[in-house]
Nucleic acid binder design. Structure first.
Lengths: 211, 211
DNA sequence: GTTAATATTGAACAATGTTCACATGAGTAG
DNA sequence: CTACTCATGTGAACATTGTTCAATATTAAC
């Protein structure tokens, strides 16, 4: 089984189309929301038939889920780019980066968190796992800040703290509700983390002795 | 204009049907999720035609929004039932009650927070206002705990804190994700509030001097 | 170039939201 | 009680949108 062969013409066309469909679907979700995503709109914009979309993604949920998968991947990449020099600053940075990413891609994030499968089909495990992994990115800095704590507890704390930040941001950016001004939201998130770290017995970054 | 007249037969039938439709829709959402709600299922279960549903609610979103409105009303009633004797206990109670209510009516809460309107029609203001009012229920106890703080800041803090609790609970109960065991979730929420109150300079309930 | 394998098409189908001309039945006047 | 009026209910027809699949076109293999 020699799979090292160069990409065939077919594969190249297939790949290009696949990327094109995803790009178009992502654009529609991002600008007009998940509920405005229609198969025919996508296929027409991609210059192919509806059947091709189904050949490539199985069903329409497949398109949405692939977009969602890429959203959480992009989010994770951004979060991984947060400097890990100082653990407290890293926690602030993770929250601020999540806020920025959410503000830039609100509808994509909503698609990730709000999309439900038809009937009782399960949501793909790999996406769920990636979301959990992203939310676990607070684990490392928390371990450094609470060296004596149980690792399992830190894992739970990481998820809880990130979930809390998610709640503040997702409702704060909910334009349906009386939206909090972005700058004020940023400040609210900061104050929130401030208070919570203080409650955990961690000094704020300004007051901590430098290494 | 004498509107004090007794209810006509017509009105009684209309009201009964309206309630019946809502009850059926709520049941479907609660048990099978918003995405499984279909006009024909509702009208057949209610023993009427699809047209009647439209006469009564304008469009199908009208049914969903009415169910959502009643959900937030029920939630608010439950939250208002939390004893206001001790402000710290009240905060714990609000969070615990929210957790219980969410666990009991997960799909109804998801319908409330995740439903999006078609096109760009706005979400009804009164529902948004009721949600905000519910989230403002932490305001009173926080005022008692932080008597020197600015009232506007407390209002923001109330929303932020409740949003954080909402995030922890809604993701914690997300059966799509690796669900946190309910009992552990309860504990997590408590510890979260503990830490946060401590960070705000408020002593936990056990350590506070009783009046 | 011929053939086999594969991908693409788009018309037809299925599921579901929405409308509306007509039928029904409750109120009302005589 | 009957006849008339009009709000209300009806459900077939329509509109939109997801899905399928037999026919067609394209690529790969020889």
């Amino acid at each position: 089984m020699n799979n090292v062969q160069e990409e065939s013409l077919r594969d190249r066309k297939k790949n290009r189309r696949r990327l094109q469909i995803l790009e178009i679907a992502r654009g529609i979700i991002a600008t007009k929301g998940l509920r405005s995503l229609k198969v025919r709109d996508v296929s027409e914009a991609a210059g192919c038939s509806v059947g091709s979309v189904y050949n490539e993604f199985g069903d329409f949920d497949g398109v949405i889920l692939t977009v969602n998968r890429e959203t959480v991947q992009a989010l994770t990449a951004r979060l991984r780019g947060v400097p890990a020099d100082d653990p407290v600053r890293q926690l602030y940075g993770l929250a601020a980066t999540y806020l920025d990413f959410f503000a830039e891609h609100a509808n994509l994030l909503r698609s990730l968190f709000e999309h439900r499968m038809e009937d009782d089909r399960p949501y793909p495990d790999d996406i769920l796992q990636m979301v959990m992994d992203a939310f676990a990115l607070m684990h490392a800095p928390l371990v450094r800040l609470l060296p004596d704590a149980d690792d399992v507890k830190i894992a739970l704390l990481s998820r809880t703290l990130f979930s809390a930040v998610h709640g503040i941001i997702s409702l704060g950016l909910e334009e349906r509700m009386v939206a909090v001004p972005p700058q004020m939201l940023r400040q609210q998130v900061e104050q929130f983390i401030d208070a919570h770290l203080a409650g955990l017995g961690i000094l704020p970054v300004g007051a901590r002795p430098s290494r």
